[in-house]
Design a protein around this nucleic acid. Structure first.
Length: 833
RNA sequence: GCCCCUUUAGCUCAUUGGUAGAGCGCUCCCUUGGUAAGGGCGAGGUACCGGGUCCGAUUCCCGGAAGGGGCUCCA
């Protein structure tokens, strides 16, 4: 035998003894895939059934990090799985490219946000390719492209036309650091979501989307999502919308022509109202205080309230404060005169900004009453006296001190009192929501300009559709630093324009839109990102949407997901889409943490993705992310083993070099035990993937690798057809998680690329059935023997077999039998007398 | 304070009203011509605690503990 056929130090890829070298495998297959574009989803002749798998798109604020690596590895398992199952999968990607992170970084580096953003996008795009994401690269989109944000403006104008976009003066959330307003959803525990600065209030004229009009539908349509979205997200949305039912009740106010309406969820406690409170920062409070002896005290109090940050305001330990306005309200049911106070514990923007206070049965009212020595009157019978205990009672019970309501329970009393109020015209049933309208204007540069022109004679004028997009002026000459008013105001040439209505001189609106506007509909745009005639083609959207599977972080549980649901309903009402929920199924992946806490530079526990990829390879990092646990759980990089993943991949890969049969060999002749293992693994892995237990699917693949190794080394041997069947199944299973390794295995097994399109092997049900089942024989619930029986054994046969089994006879010790419970074929339980 | 989730091997997690499993890790053995490796054997569990239902509970119900998450002046 010539020496070169059995070399000691071979570099030949075919001698079955070379080491697993992830770097060269990556270099070999990436260009092949680039050429093949296996995940292109737009071919018109494609007959496969469609599926839309969507990953939340990234902010281009630097290169990809560990969090991206996890999210995209998980999304890729789903997308690649459905491709293997024969679907035409649309799996697009784009960039959420407007917004504060990009702009702040740009400000800091003194760079043009445009160039900075596009450079980062290029960087991320190339990293995603190397990470082998199964994206359809023909469908890229950037929200900062005028071709995209043009349609933000178009949609804004559609909403404007329908009264769903409007401007109002209001006390808004203000971040003093970013110098911009924030939506309620962007204020987290009183802090700016972006920079953690305590948020203050500022009275400003701002643009809103009327999401509150859709509050009920946002709530009701959640029925469609039950079981398909994480329960946690549905709960958070429900809480956020915060629907409450009750009644509006009118109180006459002495010395005022109009009555004042309050909202209450407990109209049944109306007889227990002992005082009346208006929100200190409401117009009503100012009006009522004017001209009274409380006027100056009130003014001083109001000043204090205005200075309060949200953090201080929400401190639940804070004592109640307020001012008696020396005015009185009249209880509509009993004519009682009750004092009116102003306090900051009543919110000016919820309900009517005024409440009736029932201290006996509302803790906040009781705290206030005790602070200011106001009376407490029990109207729902309870054992303890709230005035003494300091604990308001909220239980149901017979009403007392309540005139006609006496003796009624809560539900009866509510119904009765509402009837009375309606008869007298002093009240009616009412519903309120915690949800507020969505504030969308931002005083920042890097966003979509609001397509409105302000004209001295015509007022607010929408920019005509044929003049869209209103493009951002170049940043040169502008000061993008936050200064409280939009930087666009500095672009005087841009601001000065002609009124589209009268042609006279007019000024452009200088605010930009919240970037959540972009992400509220981008998933529709992927169906044709190049469309320059419409935001999307309704026909294409009908073919692809709604999204079958959405994958992203739970951080967007409220913001992005609620806004997207809102937009979808608006578009449905406009007749542009034929569904009311955009995302049929949702998977929230966890975070990647290090030693139990979030990674950050300042904490010193930052793991760089590029370092991990260099050391372990793309496949090992992806596998580690997927195998770490259920996808919803956090991955602690300190607790996982990428080198273990790499070792496993090497072991799997080596199988492909050991297989000694030819491609296409009939597996039916192969070793039955290994064939069963293969088909069990394929079946279980598929079930696991479909129920998001990707870690379990990986474990099944690992077991199959072990079984195959054993078959080669100490079983039927490398030439057995079952070994090839098993190795090919391993390659296909691994193609979801470790595409490079899988492709190389596939090639070494004698197949053409790409394994990604090989198709999930059909599982033979006959191979999933066991010939015998182990039956457990118990005495009084304790295992005493076990026997092998056919799976189809009848109850009587099994009983007879069991009663004769030595273990049972011994355990019974001749005792009489009271009952025998037979659960064929798995169990017999004998209960002695 | 209110609500939700979790608790099974050293770790990460499966499973099931009826024999408690996997992967990783670990011990030991083999290999030293797959070797900055490979193969094999094995150990390891009172299924958080306490009650209840049941012939039988890790699984279902109730209570408690621990951990995690959400909400938090929304009348």
């Amino acid at each position: 035998m010539p020496a070169e056929e059995a070399p000691l130090m071979s570099e030949s890829p075919d001698d079955g003894r070379e080491a697993y070298d992830f770097a060269s495998i990556q270099d070999r297959w990436l260009p092949v895939w680039d050429e093949m574009a296996p995940f292109r989803s737009g071919r018109p002749d494609d007959e496969r059934p469609r599926k839309y798998v969507l990953d939340m798109f990234p902010y281009p604020s630097g290169d990809l990090h560990m969090g991206h690596a996890e999210a995209y590895a998980l999304g890729d398992v789903i997308a690649r799985y459905w491709v293997q199952r024969g679907f035409n999968v649309m799996h697009p990607i784009g960039w959420d490219a407007f917004g504060l992170p990009a702009e702040n970084a740009a400000i800091k580096n003194g760079e043009d946000p445009v160039r900075w953003t596009y450079e980062n996008i290029e960087q991320q795009k190339s990293s995603m390719r190397r990470y082998a994401c199964s994206f359809d690269w023909d469908r890229l989109l950037n929200t900062c492209d005028p071709e995209f944000y043009r349609w933000n403006q178009w949609l804004f104008l559609q909403m404007y036309e329908r009264g769903l976009a409007y401007r109002k003066d209001s006390a808004v959330n203000w971040c003093p650091k970013d110098q911009t307003v924030l939506a309620n959803e962007q204020v987290v525990a009183g802090l700016c979501e972006r920079c953690d600065t305590p948020v203050t209030k500022k009275k400003l004229n701002q643009w809103y989307f009327r999401i509150t009009d859709y509050a009920d539908r946002l709530l009701e349509d959640m029925q469609q999502l039950e079981g398909a979205w994480p329960e946690k997200v549905l709960l958070m949305q429900r809480n956020w919308i915060g629907r409450s039912t009750g009644a509006e009740v009118q109180f006459a106010v002495e010395g005022r022509d109009e009555p004042v309406t309050v909202y209450t969820t407990r109209p049944d406690t109306l007889y227990g109202a002992t005082f009346f409170v208006v929100a200190a920062d409401s117009d009503l409070a100012a009006e009522l205080a004017t001209g009274t002896e409380a006027e100056s005290e009130f003014a001083a109090y109001l000043e204090r309230v205005k200075r309060l940050s949200d953090v201080d305001r929400m401190d639940s330990a804070r004592a109640k404060s307020g001012v008696f306005l020396h005015r009185y309200a009249v209880n509509p049911v009993n004519g009682e005169r009750i004092p009116i106070w102003a306090s900051d514990y009543v919110l000016s923007d919820y309900g009517t900004g005024a409440i009736m206070a029932v201290p006996a049965h509302d803790q906040r009212d009781l705290d206030f009453a005790r602070a200011f020595g106001l009376p407490v009157r029990v109207v729902v019978a309870s054992e303890a006296d709230p005035a003494v205990t300091g604990e308001a009672t909220a239980d149901d019970g017979p009403h007392v001190n309540s005139g006609p309501l006496d003796g009624l329970c809560k539900a009866e009393a509510i119904a009765a009192i509402i009837e009375v109020l309606e008869e007298r015209g002093t009240g009616r049933p009412a519903v309120n929501y915690r949800l507020r309208d969505w504030l969308i204007s931002r005083q920042r540069y890097w966003g979509t300009p609001i397509p409105i022109v302000h004209c001295a004679s015509c007022g607010e004028v929408p920019v005509p559709l044929d003049q869209l997009p209103v493009t951002l002026p170049p940043v040169e000459g502008l000061d993008p630093k936050p200064q409280g008013t939009s930087p666009l105001g500095g672009a005087t040439d841009w601001v000065a324009t002609a009124c589209p209505r009268c042609g006279g001189p007019a000024l452009r609106d200088t605010d930009t839109m919240d970037t959540f506007v972009d992400s509220s509909w981008y998933y529709l745009r992927y169906t044709n990102p190049q469309d320059d005639t419409a935001p999307f083609d309704p026909d294409l959207v009908r073919e692809w949407l709604p999204v079958d599977q959405y994958v992203g972080g739970v951080t967007h549980a409220i913001l992005h997901l609620l806004y997207s649901r809102f937009f979808t309903k608006v578009l449905f009402d406009m007749g542009l889409v034929d569904f009311t929920e955009p995302f049929t199924r949702l998977l929230n992946q966890g975070m990647v943490v290090m030693d139990g806490s979030a990674m950050s530079k300042s904490r010193g526990n930052l793991v760089r993705l590029s370092d991990e990829l260099a050391v372990h390879g793309v496949d090992a990092v992806r596998l580690t992310m997927v195998f770490a646990g259920p996808p919803e759980d956090d991955v602690d990089w300190a607790e996982v083993s990428p080198s273990g993943s790499k070792r496993f991949l090497a072991r799997a890969w080596r199988l492909s070099g050991d297989v000694a049969s030819e491609p296409g060999v009939d597996p039916a002749a192969g070793d039955l035990g290994l064939r069963k293992a293969t088909h069990h693994a394929l079946h279980d892995a598929a079930t696991a993937v479909e129920s998001f237990r990707f870690n379990v699917a990986v474990a099944r693949a690992m077991e199959l690798v072990n079984a195959t190794r054993k078959a080669i080394d100490s079983g039927p041997g490398a030439a057995d057809p079952a070994v090839r069947e098993a190795a090919e199944a391993v390659a296909i299973m691994l193609s979801l998680v470790a595409p490079y390794t899988a492709e190389d295995m596939w090639s070494r097994l004698g197949h053409e690329p790409t394994v990604a399109l090989a198709g999930w092997p059909a599982v033979d049900p006959a191979l999933l059935v066991e010939e015998t089942v182990t039956c457990v024989i118990q005495v009084a619930g304790k295992v005493r023997d076990r026997i092998d029986v056919p799976p189809g054994i009848g109850e009587e046969d099994l009983r007879a077999l069991a009663m004769a089994s030595p273990g049972l006879v011994k355990a019974l010790e001749g005792r009489a039998v009271r009952t025998v419970i037979v659960r064929a074929p798995k169990l017999v339980n004998v209960v002695p007398a």
